[in-house]
Design a protein around this nucleic acid. Sequence first.
DNA 1: CTGAAAGCGCTTACAG
DNA 2: CTGAAAGCGCTTACAG
Lengths: 334, 334
Amino acid sequence: MITRNDVAKRAGVSVGTVSNVMNNKSFVKPEHVEKVRKAIEELNYIPDFNAKSMARRCNNHIGIALYEMTNPYHAEIIQGIEEYAAEHNFMTTIFVLNNSSPHKYHAICERRLDGLVNFMTNDLPHAFTAELKRQKIVLVNFTAEDSFLIVNDYTPPMLEYMHILQEGGHRKVAYLWTGDEVRFRADMRGKTFLEEREKYGFDTDDSLVLFNDDVMQTSEQVGYRLCGQLLERHPDVTAVFCTNDLVALGALRRLSEAGLRCPEDVSVIGCDDIALGEYFNPPISTISFDKRRHGAEIAQWIIEKIADPKSHPYQTMVVSTYAKLRKSIAPAKK
Amino acid sequence: MITRNDVAKRAGVSVGTVSNVMNNKSFVKPEHVEKVRKAIEELNYIPDFNAKSMARRCNNHIGIALYEMTNPYHAEIIQGIEEYAAEHNFMTTIFVLNNSSPHKYHAICERRLDGLVNFMTNDLPHAFTAELKRQKIVLVNFTAEDSFLIVNDYTPPMLEYMHILQEGGHRKVAYLWTGDEVRFRADMRGKTFLEEREKYGFDTDDSLVLFNDDVMQTSEQVGYRLCGQLLERHPDVTAVFCTNDLVALGALRRLSEAGLRCPEDVSVIGCDDIALGEYFNPPISTISFDKRRHGAEIAQWIIEKIADPKSHPYQTMVVSTYAKLRKSIAPAKK
DNA sequence: CTGAAAGCGCTTACAG
DNA sequence: CTGAAAGCGCTTACAG
């Protein structure tokens, strides 16, 4: 492996000067710059970023904690993060933290990340998060005081959908939720739905909101199962909100098996706007925002805060979302 | 940040001894082991893996080159890689290489990966691959001589599907392919289809095989578009093979818009067995294998070859696959 | 069995 | 403007 030493010898300068050339210091004599560039070119020299990291005490490394790789919603955001980060010389590494042994948390701490984005919904071990703070890693989606917090503002699209359903004469409107009641009420969708349903003339029977207690199932499975329960409880339901598009997909399948058509018999609304949603049968109405751009923005905060910890104080970042209407909604059957 | 030095001082030994304890060297005096462990515990010491990497000349780092994050097929394989790698103290980093600037290739080379898996279908710059070889990185899916090559053996499931279609009286059988003709013939699906279609009594009209020339479109879009072309050329088609399940999803949508039902009017067969396929309407018949286990296996080869370059000679690794029948196939309409 | 020392490939004051 | 040197946090022969 070629090192800075080889380059220095070939260019007839010291390693320090090679470093200064590589880091574009303006004070290097132009003819030395020239000689060094030539030596780099001839030797095909590629610097060792890890050695550089060690000397500079910054790894240019962002981590992402994830429950599973196959979530298309996160995949898009992550791609946004990765692309922005790469342009700014940062590397992005995903850590899958389902059923994780303590060993894995320890391994993350050993890598000395500069930033870490948390996409887990369940809680992380306290010893782990404490260590992250001790290392002064820039955090996203941990606790309110010690990290950026991302909150999607779902209120406008929720109200829009509720209005559309009201206009369509829907009264039995259900919600299939992948988490528990606490998270539902904490989410702006749940909050809006519960607070506003009466105003929009919906049935306020709480059994129209179904929660999930099996964290092992995929979203599609949960949607399928909860929709089955819903049809037992309320065969006369005419509209269903779902936590996300995958839940909606499972619900669509269950409706179809029950001989119910969407949207003629039951309207279905998803969330997240995954690319596939356009190809569901029928194409799913959903709640959207630019996930790639959002990912890039996350990366930007992190990188700017790494460069200057005072640049962005930790705060809640609100993401605006909007309703994306597709064919899965129709007026209620008489 | 606590370092080995702090631990050494607290334990009253040298840094070398701390290292020996951490690396479980058997020759350390038990009471020293005890003292060092205690100091580590009390100080909450977590070693710096990057410093360790630098000294050992191995980063325990595997890279994955990808076109996009949102491909669910790759996501499952990658999760298998990540999980196996993590258990063996390796970190896995994804590099998104669509429309990549030379800068990004350079950045990868700077990180001194120990292994790199290539999931790109288009060619990578020669200077890049040459540098990877120079660095003696363990490679997967590059060229035959210098890397492991993964080949899925699709012949048995292809023959099974062709047999089923034959039994169902299908004669007009099409193939929607996301790549060009060269790749189609190089793939065992294309090869089997072209070589065996006559034997199974299928129409051998080459215009039943549709290729894609727009690399910017997603699989669903390609499936939708090619299926449209197919219906124009051959309104009497009764069965369609697709490159993957997402192409099949696009095709299903196009069929539905044309007023054709699947499987009553047209049978559709996908490939890759993505989790969502079970929830398509109808559930899609596909070709499957255990992608998580496969990913783990890839990681295992790489890690073993990093430890001992002679352990696994570079060779082609054949992955067995099988047909997974679902409701998207029925006998041909009379 | 252990400590002192050299080394991994960089960066960065600092003296000149 | 530049080179020599110290330092980043580890590992690993090697002398004792």
